[in-house]
Amino acid sequence: MRAGRLRGMPTAFDVRALASTVRIELDDSLNSAEQESIKAHWVDLAHHEDGEPDRVIRAGLGDLSPAFDGSFPVRADSPEGLAQRITSEITIRAIGGLRGEALMLHASAVALDDGRVVGFVGPSGRGKTTAVQALGRAYGYVTDETLAVRVDGSVVAYPKPLSIRKRPGVKATEPASTLGLRTAPTHDLRLAALVLLDRRPGVDDPFVESVPIIEALSALAPQTSHLSALEHPLRTLLDTILTTGGVRRVVYAEASSLPSLIDDVLRTIEHGAPMLIDIPKLSERDCGCFSDDVATQSNPSGAEESGVYWRASYVDALTVDDALIVQVMGQVVVLAGVGPILWLAADGLTELELREIAMRQLPEAPAGVDVTGVIADAVQGMVDTRILVRK
Rank of each mutant, 00 (worst) to 15 (best):
S163G: 12
F120P: 12
P233H: 07
A376I: 11
I213A: 11
L362G: 06
L362S: 13
R285K: 14
Q84G: 00
D27G: 10
A273L: 09
E254H: 15
G100P: 11
S313W: 08
A303N: 09
G81A: 10
G70Q: 06
F207C: 13
H47T: 01
V320H: 11
A192K: 05
P79I: 14
T129F: 03
D205A: 11
A273S: 13
S154M: 08
Y252L: 06
L98Q: 03
A17P: 11
D28Q: 04
G368T: 03
G245K: 08
V374P: 01
L335T: 03
L194H: 00
M9G: 05
A111W: 12
I279A: 11
L191G: 02
A46P: 03
G307L: 07
L189A: 12
T224R: 02
S260I: 08
T91A: 14
V208N: 02
E270H: 15
S291L: 08
F13P: 03
C287E: 03
V328D: 05
R150Q: 12
R85D: 09
G4Q: 00
A365F: 06
V195G: 04
V208T: 06
D321L: 04
L362E: 15
G119Q: 02
F13Y: 13
R16A: 14
H106G: 04
I90C: 11
D293N: 05
L230I: 09
E270K: 05
L197G: 00
S256M: 10
A184F: 00
D27Y: 07
V326M: 02
L103Y: 04
S218M: 15
E353H: 01
A192Y: 12
G153I: 05
E36S: 01
L105V: 03
E34G: 01
P274L: 01
E174T: 03
G140D: 10
A172L: 02
V155M: 02
K281F: 13
T350S: 01
S298N: 04
G381N: 05
A83N: 07
D347E: 10
G246M: 07
E36C: 03
V326L: 08
I387H: 00
A67K: 05
T296K: 11
L282Q: 06
T243H: 14
D63V: 14
I92S: 04
G339E: 04
R355K: 03
L242R: 14
